[in-house]
Design a binder for these strands. Structure first.
Lengths: 215, 215
DNA sequence: ACAAGAAATGAACCTGGGTTCATTAATTTC
DNA sequence: GAAATTAATGAACCCAGGTTCATTTCTTGT
């Protein structure tokens, strides 16, 4: 034998992979999935088209991984808030607001990830993400209901509806180019809607203290 | 001159067009957009592939027209209830329930129309439909707010959130094959969610008298 | 330096399905 | 029934863009 992967090579490989993902993120971010052809991604990553296939078995895999990794952070944040301390309804409120505000900052990338028409594989990953979110929110609803802090209701339905309301509420603002000024208003509006939907007696616009804590 | 479109021919042409649309609806309905290739649609309509293009300039046009015409009825129904008599909040409740229940009956077609990944053109039409719905619901919210029947809120945001919550709430049930038994529960759950979201003081599960009136 | 792998390359290939268009079949008028 | 015009046909075309793979370039161990 006369070859063995050195740490150095290993590093370069990992770097290439990361570079590809980053390039894809950039392209999707400001051109949507349309712009992100394999050739373009490769070029942006400083590699040849074929090389992409040494790191990802197909374009779909690449895109799905991009989607997942990007959303993982968002889900983490929401999850962190959700499993924090305090009354479930407060955690719910904080989680909602955190998600909405972060999405409004994420801008075009968030839009592409959440809404842009895409292949079936990507759509599947998207559904999965929605389900994850719905589960977290649904769980909080269940907790709050158990604590008699909210009117009795099906947590699964509530979870799904919350996710739908959030995303659709975000859609408009995310799709068009808008001034970031009214972001705050939109965020507040969406959160207020969801909180009322869950049957809180309006300490709605109440503070969201530990949101900032989670970076 | 030696040819002129006779009423008879005119009729057959119209019939062909209708047949194409019907064929497309059937295919989409039980196979999703995937199954609805132009060739398949043509075959199902008893025509040759090329003939489709004498009636529709492109597949996208055909699909968009299918989408629009199918949703037009739904929007009509909602609109009719919305512009009926009585307090805005009651009309809102009725419109919500009507939409949700009809969607649950529409089944797979509704799913394809509302959610299945599709081309950009179709997605655009879809957005348009969502906007139309959001407008109607938003309008009702505005009315109700004006009548001090609901807490003050941005009707645009509320409209969008309502649509999102409804559709996402429907998504789960529509996507998988499910017993129609729990449809009622889902419908009730979604409607209840939305009504609470708007800040009604729960005459929520209240009757929906004139819903049935609109066929 | 050389052999033995591994990684990178990018032009050629492939494919599904929408679209076209030269040809044929139907209509209508005279 | 012949001419004129329109409708219908369906196999061939086209094309974007994902994938492949024979070739080249790098790395590593001896």
């Amino acid at each position: 034998m006369a070859y063995r992967r050195t740490a150095q090579v290993e590093t370069r490989l990992a770097d290439n992979r990361a570079r590809i993902l980053r390039a894809a993120r950039t392209l999707v971010s400001d051109g949507g999935f349309r712009q992100a052809q394999v050739a373009a991604v490769a070029a942006a990553a400083g590699l040849a088209t074929g090389s992409v296939y040494r790191y990802f078995p197909s374009k779909a895999h690449l895109m799905v991984e991009l989607l997942r990794s990007t959303c993982a952070r968002e889900i983490e944040v929401v999850q962190a808030i959700a499993s924090g301390g305090g009354p479930a309804r407060d955690r719910l409120a904080d989680a909602l607001r955190a998600f909405v505000e972060r999405a409004l900052k994420g801008d075009r990338l968030a839009y592409a990830i959440v809404a842009e028409p895409a292949s079936a594989e990507i759509e599947d990953a998207r559904q999965e993400i929605k389900r994850a979110l719905a589960l977290i929110f649904g769980g909080l609803v269940a907790e709050a209901v158990a604590a008699s802090d909210m009117p009795d209701q099906d947590p699964n339905i509530a979870g799904a509806c919350i996710v739908g309301a959030m995303l659709e509420g975000l859609m408009g603002p995310l799709a068009r180019d808008r001034a970031a000024e009214d972001d705050e208003a939109v965020a507040t509006g969406i959160v207020a809607f969801c909180l009322r939907a869950l049957g809180q007696e309006q300490n709605a616009k109440g503070e969201h203290a530990h949101v900032r804590a989670v970076r």
